[in-house]
Design a protein around this nucleic acid. Structure first.
Lengths: 233, 233
DNA sequence: CTGTACACGTGAGCC
DNA sequence: TGGCTCACGTGTACA
């Protein structure tokens, strides 16, 4: 590669030298054909200008080659092609990494949110859940929760496990309950067995008293069964 | 910009048309000066070849212009210059994002370490970006457990949550660990995010002292990272 | 009228 | 030897 480079510049130099003799030739030639001094001056200006343009373009190309790794050939066209491929590769990487970063951030906010308290959760953004639920008709069939257990795991985590009937959108409705209580879902799990659904949901505990949260959850989920009755475990 | 583009291609087209008449001229000229048919054929071949070369180069340049946003001018030199600037800008972005990702990851790892924690990895964690940069990324066996938390939920249940690299058979190896410790798995859960796997395993606690079990689990899982070192909490 | 930017044909070097 | 890549000078169109 280095020697190719050397050859490249040697060629450049060589042809630059060659240019001068050529230039003399053309100059005398022009002098004979059209003796107008202004015209020949303009022509030589054009020549030197064009020479500078080519030089600048080659320098740019050389600089482009410098910022692009993995240059296969020293070809002008190949340099540009490699640059194009490299830019596209960078674009793909950028997209991937952006997705990864946003995912990391979202997961981190779900995860435990230690010091910085849910900054962008101030408004209960009823986002996708309720939208999909609206289209499906959330009011239609009650969920029929059969068993419900709310327990604490460590200081920061609440585990809710419940069984309910096999309906569609049961998990969505459960999640809506937690959302309405400002409880963040860490992870959730559905298991189907004997015509029932067993759900296990890990929640991030907020600052409230444990028992208060527990009662709130039980009340809200029990309300899914019969919105009129205040509750009955 | 659109009109500039149009002008550009109009020019291209125009000068291409012009070329044909020029070509005819030069052809007849050559025919008169040197009646050697082979020579003129070679010359015309050279002409058309050179024409194709220029065309290819221009197409490449056009493609380069297409993948680079914010092109200031349609100049050839300017196109290359903008491409260079853009690549350098992407390089800066890449460095910034890489730093951001590592910072995020370190925060996240600090985060889980609040309870009883080991999980400090001697190796500098290879971010996903570095892995893509790595030409040969296929590393075989070790699972690379990054975070590990063992806690008790009630009297009968142990919850183990850990994150590890995305490998095949990671859960199998984890389960083998629990089996070797005579711990029964109640349920297990895998969640994939940001190139990692988050596993949550519920174990049935045996009769041993809680802290003893905890240490055993931590030791055995740490051994997955580096089987030689016995580990140090 | 003066640059500027371009495509063209041409000759030369290099496999 | 033919097939490339290249730099060069030149004519032309546009601002």
């Amino acid at each position: 590669m280095d020697d190719m480079d050397k050859n490249y510049w040697e060629n450049m130099l060589f042809q630059t030298e060659e240019l001068e003799s050529c230039f003399d030739e053309s100059f005398s030639y022009y002098d004979s054909s059209s003796p107008d001094g202004a015209q020949s001056s303009a022509a030589s200006k054009n020549i030197v200008s064009e020479r500078n343009r080519r030089k600048k373009l080659n320098e740019r190309l050389f600089a482009l080659r410098a910022v692009v790794p993995n240059i296969s050939k020293m070809d002008k066209a190949s340099i540009i092609k490699d640059a194009i491929d490299y830019i596209q590769e960078l674009h793909n990487q950028e997209r991937t990494i952006q997705a990864e970063i946003s995912e990391l951030e979202s997961k981190r906010s779900i995860f435990l949110d230690f010091d910085q308290e849910m900054s962008y959760n101030s408004k209960p953004k009823r986002s996708r859940f309720e939208q999909t639920c609206d289209s499906a008709g959330s009011r239609s069939s009650p969920i029929e929760v059969h068993e419900l257990r709310v327990s604490h795991m460590g200081e920061k985590t609440i585990v809710v496990s419940l069984t309910c009937s096999k309906r569609t959108d049961t998990m969505v409705k459960i999640c809506e309950v937690f959302e309405s209580l400002d409880l963040k879902i860490i992870t959730a799990n559905i298991t189907a067995f004997s015509g029932r659904l067993l759900k296990t949901v890990f929640l991030e505990a907020n600052e409230e008293e444990k028992d208060v949260v527990k009662i709130k959850i039980q009340t809200a989920i029990a309300a899914l069964n019969d919105p009129d009755s205040p509750m009955s475990i």
